[in-house]
């Protein structure tokens, strides 16, 4: 953590970056995102087990972009986020300085995104064990049980869209859920509308999810919506052998194809 603070201070002193997005100590033992703009503030930066939020979500926000050249404290999911956003032309390659935090908690200083690619080839994050178990449990149910499970689970959803706002991949200025001609998904919370919304979100994130789990953590009702996107990551890995955000050179799974993609159900 000291090396992270030292690096942050040095970056701000040399005016190499104008703002560092990192984690700060909040109230009642919580952490929150902090925007460090002076060298003196660098010691406020922290990193520990509580720092789970995907800070990449701020990179596409206009008010943050206006702060100048950015650096970001990046655990593995954030590194992957940066690479996807670069491929999707939301940020320019090497424009955001990445202060990496490895899987073992070590500070990693990346000069360019090619170094991140190299690091990620053998240090990719996996889904947490409890989520893996839940996904297995749901997968073992019958189709009807699964329908009932999701119906009951998603029923309390109030459509606050916190899952969308927390996700760095959901950066569309106008989400399909806000389109009303035609109206794809009802605005208000309704049983079918909730299913449709979460179905759509999972489809749009298939092959783009970095596995940070922020959607599930941000849900005020504690609905495990991240299981849907995690499952999609598994499906994409099984069928196309790709993981999102490991390179800036390849398009995401659903925006490309291979002539020899294998399936067993098309007659």
């Amino acid at each position: 953590m000291d090396s992270l603070r030292r690096k942050a201070q040095q970056l701000l002193e040399s005016k190499e970056v104008d703002c560092i997005i990192g984690y700060n100590e909040g109230s009642s033992g919580n952490v929150h995102a902090g925007f460090i703009t002076t060298p003196g503030q660098a010691e406020k930066l922290i990193f520990d087990d509580r720092c789970k939020q995907n800070l990449g979500v701020y990179l596409t926000k206009h008010e943050v972009m206006r702060l100048g050249k950015l650096a970001i404290v990046a655990p593995v999911p954030v590194m992957r986020t940066v690479l996807i956003l670069t491929y999707e032309c939301q940020i320019v390659e090497n424009s955001v300085k990445v202060l990496g935090i490895g899987l073992d908690g070590q500070f990693l200083d990346f000069n360019e995104y090619a170094d991140i690619e190299k690091y990620l080839t053998d240090h990719c994050n996996e889904h947490p064990e409890e989520d893996k178990k839940l996904i297995e449990k749901i997968s073992a149910m019958s189709v009807e049980e699964r329908w009932d499970f999701w119906h009951e689970t998603l029923k309390p959803c109030i459509k606050c869209f916190a899952c969308r706002q927390a996700c760095p991949m959901c950066y569309c200025v106008r989400c399909q859920v806000e389109c009303n001609q035609p109206q794809w998904i009802p605005v208000q919370s309704s049983e079918l509308g909730n299913m449709e919304w979460h179905f759509m979100r999972a489809m749009h994130l298939a092959g783009r999810c970095t596995g940070c789990g922020d959607c599930g953590r941000s849900c005020p009702l504690g609905i495990p919506v991240h299981l849907l996107t995690f499952k999609m990551s598994d499906v994409v890995l099984d069928n196309f052998n790709t993981k999102a955000g490991l390179t800036i050179k390849e398009p995401s799974t659903l925006s490309t194809y291979k002539a020899n993609d294998k399936e067993t159900f098309i007659r």
Binding site: M141, W147, A206, N239, T253, E263
Partner: peptide, 17 residues
């Protein structure tokens, strides 16, 4: 084809027949 591979899996996972 890619979309349907993913779609079918998501249908299965969410319990759509």
């Amino acid at each position: 084809r890619r979309r349907w591979i993913v779609f079918r899996n998501l249908c299965d996972f969410m319990g759509i027949d």
